[in-house]
Design a protein around this nucleic acid. Structure first.
Lengths: 149, 149
DNA sequence: GTAAGCCTTCGAGTGCGCGCGAAGTCAAGC
DNA sequence: GCTTGACTTCGCGCGCACTCGAAGGCTTAC
């Protein structure tokens, strides 16, 4: 999981699942100060990889570049900014949770529609296929079906 | 929930929670054939509102305009396209579920980070605040904490 | 020495889903 | 008849996060 020796931008990109272009972009945007080798090449070691992995979690949940910059600015400030970082993360967490709920609601509506197609295709009153269950669906059974079509 | 009389674009937009601009855009893009009043004004009745509501569920789960067009093309084709519509929706559903899972994984990582800040701020080995639980979180306790920072 | 290959910077382009302002039209009220 | 106001079409602009191409430099291999 961790590298013993600093990685080139290509290797780092491969590990993180992004393109080298993206890593350079993040650098340009001032998210990280990536150490350079003698020839000026970026060297990604554990610290950078760890930070980037977390930044990618933030990006994956829709935080914009401005948010990432703000967070990394606090990180550079030092340990005493921990409360502010926590506040920033909690605020983001709440936004994400809201989006997650509405995403689940939308998905639920789509599944209801699929179920209706199943009912009509099955042509015997009951769904032909029981719409195989998924772990993600657990919470949705509490919400009303909301069959709006 | 439903209108007895066709709505103006403003009223429809308000009900659907989008802007009139967006409704005209959808019209231009050929998603719906919205009936017009004598003066050429769009009139949204139950059929249109219902269709749009479902389209907004699709948009809300990240389906692009091309997907919406494809779906609506099938709807216009008639009832015999039901199997294709179902297939389209099922494919989309699976994409969304995948995104949902990765979103939850990202969110989980962020929450782990918050918990670590809590631990350090609390300064007594245990989280000062038990990180209040949410219904969304139910499935996540099965996944490993993945504290990567 | 020189060719290969990966790196560098800089700046412009892309794709998507609107957002918005301009300019014109139409129906209703006074 | 004239204003008012909501509607129409048209088409450019935008914000975001990349994405890519051009032009050049450094190191290593032969």
């Amino acid at each position: 999981m961790s590298a013993l020796v600093p990685l080139s931008i290509q290797e780092a990109a491969a590990r993180l699942g992004v393109s080298p272009h993206t890593l350079r972009y993040y650098d340009r945007e001032g998210l990280l100060d990536v150490p350079r080798a003698s020839g000026g090449e970026r060297r990604y070691s554990d610290r950078e990889l760890t930070l980037l992995r977390f930044l990618l979690h933030l990006r994956g949940t829709g935080m914009g570049m401005a948010g990432l910059r703000a967070y990394m600015a606090l990180v550079r400030e030092g340990e005493h900014t921990a409360p502010e970082r926590r506040a920033l993360l909690v605020a983001h967490e709440q936004e994400v949770e809201a989006r997650l709920l509405s995403l689940q609601a939308d998905l639920s509506a789509i599944r209801a529609k699929i179920a209706r197609y199943d009912a009509h295709l099955g042509c015997d009153g009951a769904p032909a296929r029981p719409v195989l269950d998924s772990p993600v669906l657990a919470a949705q059974r509490t919400a009303p079906p909301e069959v709006n079509a």
